[in-house]
Design a protein around this nucleic acid. Structure first.
Length: 764
DNA sequence: GTCGA
DNA sequence: AACAATGCGCG
DNA sequence: TCGACCGCGCATTGTT
């Protein structure tokens, strides 16, 4: 980690517009303060002689003003008889500590005032374009702008600021601080709070508009009172007030204008023909509008309600109508039609082996492959069938997954569940689907999925419109960006994007760093690194390190430590998004408090850089239930797992030694590692519970519920009625000579399920 | 979106 | 301060 | 036609 000089992270001056900075001409809010913020409040001492009564209604933007400073500003204005207003809608002039258009628009927007920039006519389009280009060059808006790397990216411009941000993030994140930072400044408590200032400082630094902004264009400055542009709103820098006070006269606002705009409708559902206007063109013409347009755009998602749901269904029907011969068979209307074809269909289901119905259909037909048993028998739980990773229908599954992602981003849990079911079924189907009929007989796949398949199979490029939206729709792209932050779910992503109007990670860092939770900050910090896939070899290495540390902290019987790598790795994936590893030990008490010890040891040796969450419920309850267990004869303690979700970075790298002087930083990618500690008694449940794909897991639970009346969890099984523990692994777990996988097999067996190899649990 | 009571 | 509700992650 | 759709622990936020 880069060395850094720190200024007091908790100092408010980066944000604070304190009285002293107000009147200090040298101090610019985005620079390290030239004077401490504390000190004297000159405010009331200066009775001013300005007369601002003929100004349009003024609104003071409170952002970055502590309440004192805000009061002060308002007092000054009031003393000058300025028409202060507290309604954004009434105001025509806005003053505040705002340095960029983007920021200005955001400030107004978050107060319910949506705007679009107005460009003075003396500004040619050419200039616009030029400006855009130069802005782009500056990094203000280039597209793949890799991140927000809270550290690296900014460091170029302002090492101090950037590295400070870096430090904040790190320190906040770490009760378990173990960065190689030589400076041990951090009181671990320095949580989230201070960093807001840093984010702000950083923003000011890279805010491209800083230099560009104050284009003193219109040389014909409007005198303060003259409003040639009645409907225009102007956001002006607080410097205007400061300078006016200093000069003792009302300065023309012209050169202080940060953002000139007009109010527009909050873009809501009804603005749906907007789709017709290619967004890119808008951007080309009026680049400065970009931010607003983007911010407005979110709502346009509604526009696809008619176009996607309804229309597609309609189209589906029409589509189905096109193929008259097979129409009804393909699209039983669930009510009547299904019955109409019921006979032929059930027949078909049972003996598709025979090419009986080969004749009727069109090109994509032919004898259908024999349906697997689970299809014929409508086996609906994914845990009852084999779902290998490689499916002949991968391309279609991919489309379905995109649609599911769109549902996730729209916070449609049920839709997500529905598509997951369909995906799992399609993924389990061993033949390349050649007819919609085949889709229809899959459990969890009905009209909609069949329709999608038709669209898919009929398309040039093997895609469907609804799936393309995830990439094409700007709203969804933005949502996805935020959703991909660890610790940000659908709710928060929508909040950031739709409510706050943030458009990219920079916005989150610049405008909302302080509103992010601790783990979200970590998630942002390592956004790019967490997105990197982990090859199997690295997973193995990481687990080896975990094993060594587990042994180290288990001195009584280090050889008794047993490890199983689960998650995607166990399912055979070439790469994983994270590393999941189960640690167990045959001795019951050996696993007690083991997570904490392992985590502590790994922090100690520098592998764990952050702890995202630590679950200790198992251990604490384990202790409590021990007596309970013995007294309760049959009943075993019901331990949940202890687990640690951590950020991992290998502290060793080639050339580390020589890097000491050069301040080279650890190039190893930060990884997400989940360490699960399970008591031996339930280690089979843990293995089962951590090895399958999501849908496989859900279906294990649904199956256990529906078929057995049990409540399955990766830490054990209970009977729903009696609440008693169901022990499938033996009172002390599997015995000598048997391992974790044996325990897992017993659980399958006890559940009445055929054992599925891990690579048969790839339900997506 | 699908299934089943 | 204690508790409840919500959001999120895990597979 | 209408409800159910995994189950758990932690962290944060809201309520009293």
């Amino acid at each position: 980690m880069a060395p850094r000089t720190l200024r007091d992270p908790s100092s408010s001056h980066t944000i604070g517009f304190s009285s002293s900075t107000l009147f200090d001409p040298t101090s610019s809010p985005q620079q390290p303060p030239s004077s401490p913020p504390a000190a004297t409040s000159t405010t009331s001492a200066t009775p001013n002689s300005l007369d601002l009564h003929c100004l349009p209604p003024i609104f003071v933007i409170p952002a970055h003003l502590d309440s004192d400073a805000q009061d002060e500003v308002e007092e000054e204005l009031a003393a000058s008889h300025a028409p202060l207003t507290y309604s954004v809608h009434e105001a025509r002039l806005f003053v505040g500590l705002v340095r960029s258009k983007k920021r200005a628009a955001l400030e107004l927007r978050t107060r319910g005032l949506w705007t679009e920039e107005v460009v003075r006519e003396d500004k040619s389009v050419q200039e616009e374009v030029k400006e855009k280009v130069s802005r782009g060059r500056e990094g203000g808006s280039e597209p793949p702008r890799k991140r927000v790397k809270v550290d690296g990216g900014v460091a170029k411009e302002d090492v101090e600021t950037a590295s400070e941000t870096e430090v904040e993030t790190a320190s906040e994140a770490s009760e378990t601080e173990s960065e190689s930072a030589p400076s041990d400044h951090v009181p671990a408590e320095s949580t989230i709070e201070p960093s807001k200032g840093n984010a702000e400082a950083q923003y000011a630094v890279d805010g491209s508009s800083v230099q560009l902004q104050p284009h003193p264009k219109s040389p014909a400055e409007d005198p303060p009172g003259a409003l040639q542009f009645q409907d225009h709103l102007r956001v002006i820098s607080l410097d205007w007030l400061r300078d006016s006070l200093k000069a003792g006269r009302v300065m023309s606002v012209g050169k202080y204008v940060v953002y000139e705009c007009r109010a527009i409708e909050k873009p809501t559902a009804p603005q749906r023909q907007q789709t017709l206007i290619p967004r890119q063109q808008i951007q080309k013409v009026i680049p400065a509008r970009k931010a607003q347009i983007a911010a407005q755009h979110p709502q346009s998602q509604r526009q696809q309600q008619p176009s996607s749901s309804q229309q597609i269904l309609d189209r589906a029907r029409a589509d189905a109508g096109e193929g008259p011969r097979v129409n009804q068979r393909y699209h039983p209307r669930r009510t009547g039609l299904a019955l109409d074809v019921k006979k032929p269909r059930s027949q078909l289901l049972q003996q598709t082996t025979t090419p009986e119905d080969a004749s009727p259909t069109n090109a994509d037909s032919g004898p259908l492959p024999p349906p697997p048993d689970w299809v014929a028998q409508h086996v609906k739980y994914a845990c009852e069938r084999s779902t290998p990773a490689d499916t002949p229908n991968a391309a279609f599954v991919e489309q379905l997954k995109r649609i599911r992602l769109a549902r996730e981003l729209r916070d449609d849990d049920i839709g997500v569940r529905a598509y997951s079911t369909s995906i799992a079924a399609v993924a389990a189907y061993p033949h390349e689907i050649r007819a919609a009929r085949e889709v229809l007989r899959l459990p969890g796949c009905s009209e909609k999925i069949a329709t999608l398949w038709r669209e898919f199979s009929g398309s040039e490029d093997g895609t469907v419109a609804e799936a393309r939206e995830v990439d094409d729709d700007e709203t969804l792209r933005t949502l996805r960006l935020f959703y991909n932050i660890w610790g940000v779910g659908a709710k928060a992503a929508r909040h950031f994007s739709l409510d706050k109007g943030w458009k990219d990670l920079d916005d989150a860092v610049e405008f909302g760093w302080g509103q992010l939770s601790r783990v979200q900050q970590i998630g942002v910090k390592f956004y790019d690194e967490f997105a990197e896939r982990i090859p199997r070899s690295e997973t193995e290495h990481i687990v080896q390190v975990v094993r060594e540390h587990a042994r180290r902290v288990c001195p009584v019987d280090p050889d008794g430590i047993e490890i199983l790598i689960v998650g995607g790795y166990r399912r055979g994936a070439e790469t994983s998004g994270d590393v999941d590893v189960i640690v167990s030990h045959r001795k019951l008490d050996a696993t007690m408090n083991l997570v904490e010890d392992i985590v502590a040891a790994l922090e100690q040796s520098g592998y764990i850089t952050h702890t995202l969450t630590l679950s200790l419920q198992g251990t604490s309850r384990g202790q409590a239930t021990l007596p309970f267990r013995s007294s309760n004869g049959a009943g075993l303690g019901f331990d949940t797992l202890d687990k640690a979700l951590v950020v991992w970075q290998d502290p060793e790298w080639p050339g580390k030694a020589s890097a000491a002087e050069t301040n080279a930083k650890n190039p190893n990618i930060h990884r997400r590692v989940d360490i699960i500690v399970s008591p031996w008694r339930t280690v089979g449940c843990a293995a089962l519970g951590w090895s399958g794909g999501t849908t496989f897991q859900r279906d294990v639970r649904r199956y256990a519920q529906a078929v057995k009346g049990w409540k399955f969890d990766s830490s054990g099984i209970r009977d729903r009625r009696t609440g008693k523990v169901v022990d499938l692994e033996g009172p002390d777990g599997v015995g000598r000579g048997e391992g974790i996988v044996d325990a897992e097999k017993k659980v399958f067996e006890g559940l009445g399920l055929v054992y599925r190899e891990p690579w048969e649990r790839c339900t997506g």
